[in-house]
C-alpha cells in the first residue's frame, strides 16, 4: 500500500527565487548609486570652489580666464559658447528634422520608410569624434572657400556637425510622435476635402506638437552636452560673441582642456571644472525633465 502524501500548501522559502531577486536588485541599484555618487562629487567639489569664488561672480562675470593671471571666473562666455553651438545646431536640425519626420510619417510609403528610417538612425551611431574631424577636415575648409576670413577653429563648423548629429533624434522622435496621432484625425481631414499638405501640416503636425517639441528639447540637450566635435572644431577661446566665424569655447570643451592639461588637482583652477560641470548638469537635467513633461502630456492626450 502506498501512502498518498498531501501536497503542502505552507509557504516555502524558494532559495533560487530569493537569490535571483536580490541579484537583479543589486544590478539595478548599481546605476542608481553611481549616479548619486557622481552628483555628490559634483556638489561637494563645486562647494569647495564656491567657498572661494562667489556664485554671483561666477554666474554674472563676463570674462573667463581661470588659468592665467589676472584670473577671471565669469562662466558666461562658456555658457554663451555652448548656446551659440546649440543655436546653430538648432537652426539646422529642427526644421530639417521636422520636415524629414513629416516625410517619413505622412508622405513616404511603407517600403521607403523601412529603408530610410534605419539609415537615419545609423547617423546617430557615428562616433562623435568622427564628426569632430569631419568638421575640421571637411566643413571648415568648405566654409573657408565661401568665407576666406573665417578662423580655422570656428563655431560655425562645430554647430553644423552638431546639427547633423542631432538631426536623427529630431527626425526619429518626431516621426514617432506624428505616427502616434490617430488615423481617425487624418481621415477627418481628408473627408473634409483637405489636401495631403493640409492634413500633414495643419492636422497631424499640430496634433503631435508636444511630442515634436519634446524631441527638440532632447536633441538640444544633447547638443549642449556634446563634447568631442566642439572640442576639436570650435576652438579654445572663451568669448562672449554671437559671431559664428570666430573661435569660441563651450563648457564641455573647457572641461576637456583642463582635464587633459597640466593643471594641478586641488587648485582653484582645477576646481572650476566641477562648477562648470555642475552648471552643465543642471541645464541638461532641466531640459530632460521638460522633455519628459511634454511627452507625458502628449501621451495623455492620445492613449
Amino acid at each position: 500500500m502506498t501512502a498518498v502524501t498531501q501536497p503542502s500548501l505552507k509557504g516555502r522559502w524558494r532559495f533560487g527565487e530569493i537569490l535571483i531577486q536580490t541579484g537583479l536588485f543589486l544590478c539595478a541599484i548599481v546605476s542608481v548609486l553611481t549616479t548619486l555618487g557622481i552628483i555628490w562629487v559634483l556638489l561637494s567639489e563645486s562647494f569647495i570652489f564656491f567657498r572661494e569664488i562667489s556664485p554671483l561672480a561666477f554666474f554674472t562675470g563676463l570674462k573667463w580666464a581661470p588659468l592665467f593671471e589676472p584670473r577671471h571666473f565669469g562662466v558666461l562666455p562658456l555658457i554663451s559658447g555652448t548656446l551659440l553651438i546649440t543655436l546653430g545646431a538648432a537652426i539646422i536640425a529642427l526644421p530639417l528634422g521636422t520636415f524629414a519626420a513629416v516625410f517619413l510619417s505622412e508622405y513616404s510609403d511603407r517600403k521607403t520608410r523601412q529603408i530610410l528610417k534605419p539609415i537615419l538612425e545609423i547617423l546617430a551611431g557615428i562616433p562623435t569624434v568622427v564628426y569632430g574631424y569631419f568638421a575640421l577636415t571637411f566643413v571648415t575648409p568648405l566654409l573657408q572657400k565661401l568665407y576666406p576670413e573665417i578662423e580655422v577653429f570656428n563655431a560655425a563648423s562645430a554647430a553644423i556637425v552638431v546639427g547633423i548629429m542631432i538631426l536623427p533624434t529630431v527626425a526619429s522622435l518626431s516621426d514617432d510622435a506624428m505616427r502616434a496621432v490617430p488615423g481617425s484625425l487624418r481621415y477627418a481631414g481628408y473627408a473634409l476635402g483637405s489636401t495631403k499638405y493640409d492634413v500633414s501640416f495643419r492636422v497631424v503636425l499640430p496634433s503631435a506638437l508636444s511630442g515634436i517639441v519634446a524631441s527638440f528639447v532632447l536633441a538640444l540637450s544633447r547638443a549642449i552636452g556634446e563634447t568631442m566635435a566642439v572640442t576639436l572644431a570650435a576652438g579654445a577661446t572663451p568669448k562672449l560673441t554671437l559671431n559664428f566665424f570666430e573661435s569660441i569655447q563651450t563648457m564641455t570643451a573647457y572641461i576637456v582642456q583642463v582635464s587633459l592639461g597640466d593643471t594641478p588637482a586641488g587648485t582653484i583652477e582645477y576646481q572650476t571644472i566641477f562648477a562648470v560641470g555642475l552648471t552643465l548638469f543642471v541645464i541638461t537635467l532641466l531640459m530632460n525633465f521638460l522633455a519628459q513633461k511634454l511627452l507625458a502630456r502628449f501621451r495623455e492626450r492620445y492613449d
Binding site: 490617430p182 481617425s184 484625425l185 481621415y187 477627418a188 481631414g189 481628408y190 473627408a191 473634409l192 476635402g193 483637405s194 489636401t195 493640409d198 495643419r202 492636422v203 499640430p206 496634433s207 492626450r301
Partner: peptide, 30 residues
Amino acid sequence: SLRRAIGMVFQKPNPFPKTIFKNVAWGPRI
C-alpha cells in the same frame, strides 16, 4: 473637390484637437 461636395461623419467622433471654432471653420478656411 469630390470630398468637399460629399462630406462624411464617422463612427467615432473625431474632432481635431483644436478649439470648437477652429473645428467648424476648418472646411471654409481651407
